[in-house]
Amino acid sequence: MRIRGAVLERIGAPRRYAESQPLRVTDLDLAPPGDDELLVRIEAAGLCHSDLSVVDGNRVRPVPMLLGHEAAGVVEAVGSAVGDIAVGQRVVMTFLPRCGDCRACATDGLAPCSAGSAANAAGTLLDGDVRLSRDGTTVLHHLGVSAFATHAVVDRRSVVPVDDDVPPVVASLLGCAVLTGGGAVLNAGQPRPGQTVAIVGMGGVGMAAMITALAHDDVRVVAVDQVPEKLSRAIELGAHAAYAPDDVGDLRAEVVIEAVGHPAALETALALTAPGGRTVTVGLPRPDARISVSPLSFVAEGRSLIGSYLGSSVPARDIPRFVEMWRAGRLPVESLVSSTITLDQINEGMDQLADGQAVRQIIAFD
C-alpha cells in the first residue's frame, strides 16, 4: 500500500532543520505484514530526543530511514500467526521489541533484548524483515516502529494493546516517555516513603519521571533544568521545588533520575545523590562522551549508579500498570504535551526539540 511518511535522507545536516530539511515527507510503499506482524494506522506520534539524536548524528543509524518510535494506532491487518490482537484494537508502539528467548530477556527488564537491539541497529523488524521501500529502493525502519507515517508494519512483539478508553495521545506517550521516565522511577529508582526524588532534565522523559514520582505517597519531588519555563511547568504539575543546576545548593536526594543525555547533566545528578542513594541515568549521550567522578564516593557513601534503558521496563507488564495509574487520576499523561504539529512540520519540530523548548510535541494524524 502507499503511505506518507518522514524519511531521514542524511545524518548531521546543519541547523536550522527547517532550512536544511534532513527529513523529507514523501510517498512510500509499505508491504503487507508477515506472519508475526501487524499493519497499524498511526493515530498519534511523539517527537523524542532519540529521534533528534539520529538526525544530528549522536546516534548513527543507516539511511534512508523512516523515523519515529513513540506512537499509538489502530490495527488494520494481522499476520496469520497473530492470534491475540484483532483488527480494530488500539496498540501502543514500543521501541525495543523483546524476543522472549535470549538471556537478556530473562533479566526482567534489566538488560535490553539482544535480538531486538541487533534489529534496531540494522534498521529492520525483529525477524530481520524490511517492509518499506521508495521507487524500488529499501527504506529502513527506526527502532522497529517508523511512526512518522500514516501507517506502519510492526512485529507483534513491538506493541502492547490498550483499551479504547485510552486516548491516542496518552497511548502514544506510554510507549516511550512514560515507559522510559516512569519506568526509571518504578523499576530502577524505587523510591520509598519519606525520600526525595530529583529529576535532572525536564523534557518529555524527565516530566514523565516527575509525574510518576508524584504518584507515590509521601515522596518529595524536585525538578532541575536550565530552562526557566520548564521549571515553571514542573511546579504547575506538582513538583515541590524546582532549581537551575547552579542553584541546587546543598540539596541531596535518595533517588536522582538523569534524563538529558549530556555529561554535565549526569555529573549534576551524581552530585545531587545522597549517601546510600541511587543515580539512575536514562539519557543517551554521544558515544564519545565522558564524565569525571570520584570512585571513592560510591564506596564510602554507599551510592550506586544505574543505567536504565527503556526504564528497565517489560512493556507488556508495565504499560498496563501506567494505564491503571492514568485511569485512577494519578498520572496526568496529557500534561506532557507541549504542542501539536502536522507531519509536514516535522523539521520545525526537530528545531524546537534541539532548542530545548519542547516537552513533547505530538503529530496528530486524524
Rank of each mutant, 00 (worst) to 15 (best):
L186E: 08
G283E: 07
Q361D: 15
H142M: 14
G307M: 07
I211M: 00
R360Q: 04
H141F: 06
E348R: 13
V63T: 08
G276D: 06
Q345M: 10
E76I: 06
G57N: 09
D51K: 09
T150Y: 00
V162G: 08
G100K: 02
G88P: 06
G182K: 00
V224N: 08
A289D: 14
D366R: 12
T150D: 14
L132H: 06
R317Y: 02
S338L: 12
V227Q: 14
K230F: 02
R41K: 13
I363V: 14
S232N: 15
S133L: 10
A215Y: 00
V162W: 01
L28K: 11
L52T: 04
V256S: 05
V159D: 05
E334L: 04
R24S: 13
M65L: 13
Q345F: 01
E348M: 11
V74T: 15
T342V: 09
F95G: 12
A234S: 12
R59Q: 15
E9D: 11
Q352R: 15
T94M: 03
H142G: 05
A119G: 05
E236Q: 13
A184F: 03
V139D: 02
G203V: 01
G57E: 09
A104G: 00
T268M: 11
R10H: 15
D163R: 15
S297Q: 15
G57Q: 08
L38P: 04
P285M: 02
R360G: 04
V160E: 04
D247G: 08
L67W: 09
G183A: 07
G206Y: 04
V260M: 06
Q352C: 11
L8W: 06
V185A: 12
L47A: 02
M350E: 03
